[in-house]
Design a protein around this nucleic acid. Sequence first.
DNA 1: ACAAAAGTGTTCAGTCTACACCCATGG
DNA 2: CCATGGGTGTAGACTGAACACTTTTGT
Lengths: 228, 228
Amino acid sequence: MEQDYSQYPRHLVAVDCIIFGFDGEHLKILLVKRNFEPQLGEWSLMGGFVGNEENADEAAQRVLHTLTGLENIYLEQLNSYTEIHREPTARIISISYYALIHIEKDLQINENYSAQWFDLQNAPDLIFDHNEMVKDAVLRLRRRASTRPIGFELLPPKFTMKDLQNLYEAIFSETFDKRNFTSKINGMDILVKTDEKDMTSSKKGSFLYRFDEKKYNKKISQGFMFKM
Amino acid sequence: MEQDYSQYPRHLVAVDCIIFGFDGEHLKILLVKRNFEPQLGEWSLMGGFVGNEENADEAAQRVLHTLTGLENIYLEQLNSYTEIHREPTARIISISYYALIHIEKDLQINENYSAQWFDLQNAPDLIFDHNEMVKDAVLRLRRRASTRPIGFELLPPKFTMKDLQNLYEAIFSETFDKRNFTSKINGMDILVKTDEKDMTSSKKGSFLYRFDEKKYNKKISQGFMFKM
DNA sequence: ACAAAAGTGTTCAGTCTACACCCATGG
DNA sequence: CCATGGGTGTAGACTGAACACTTTTGT
């Protein structure tokens, strides 16, 4: 007996991307304004349907590439949202992903989507269940950020201790003591201090650091665990 | 402009369930022997297709009910597995769930599925990507078990400290010191000690405890966090 | 009386938290 | 020379880990 698949229903399957960025001060989220019905003109997550010739990860990368022009974006699958009426016009099963990107000057957002960065704090209401997706994504981001060095995905290659602390404060929505923060980071010994300084923030200037991924991987293989 | 959904492909969407149990000694997993091609006769997770009139959670509950006769099983969605060729005969997107159930004497497993409990340690190889699903589920179970009192889902309503310790040792694959374990549990103050004893394990007998869900919820609302 | 499991506290080490002053520099 | 942000150490509290003996009772 072979299984007959024709008796089972088939579903539209989409991916929706929660795109996080960091401007040095606040956690940001990239939203798009819908240019089709229903809910034309309202804000939503960037999404797209999963095609026949791609898996969901690839679909998410494609969608992100379409919007930002970037390749190999840091991406993690989150949850599936499967309520029958989660979208009013059709039953669509959606798999959510969160993405972490550097907000660089030369980042060229595709203008077709009327995309815009919002502070996570005062982002607009989103369509359908996208608010819930964002909420879930923030929780996951916090969890990941506390056990994996994913913060560096949101920073430029070189950054100051202050940048890093601002980032973690933004992610966790709490403030840290400067001395405790730096000694914790330095204690992990996964950054290299360059001999360059960022002179824009103060007269004295502050040293720039890089994340040393090689060293990190080596330490991991020796049993080290990142912990914030 | 309204979106035309007919141009997008539709997919078979399944749920696959990683069903955990506990026999007082070892973590167990309930597997079914496939009674259809392909891979007839091999072991797999229990699964089923998501219908048009149900969401994925409901599909998973339905599938579990079919197999075990139980209702309201503890269930959590895990991941989506979307590789194009993850099954050889059709493209099927699968959403995995893990379930926690008490293994009771009166549990009547549906005989049509040739289901069998295996020690997690020496479970057989599974079809497709089901081994990966199980691996992911164990990691999630550990993570959840360390921050939520889900262990009690796997135990009968009354249990001894030894049972509880055995369970956590099975979940985390490590052994704990008896004194540290009991004082940690007692310190959380979420169990009630009954005046009954389990006399089967020793001459002295050991007291039975119950999980006090009301007290737990109250403590949670006051900021308490479960931590193992 | 003895075997077998239940029950129970203390000490030590490491980690986390709170906290304040001097430094370097551009203007 | 002074205003601004950068950089640095220590003491006390707390938490997690190691560790051994007494109790109970059925046989």
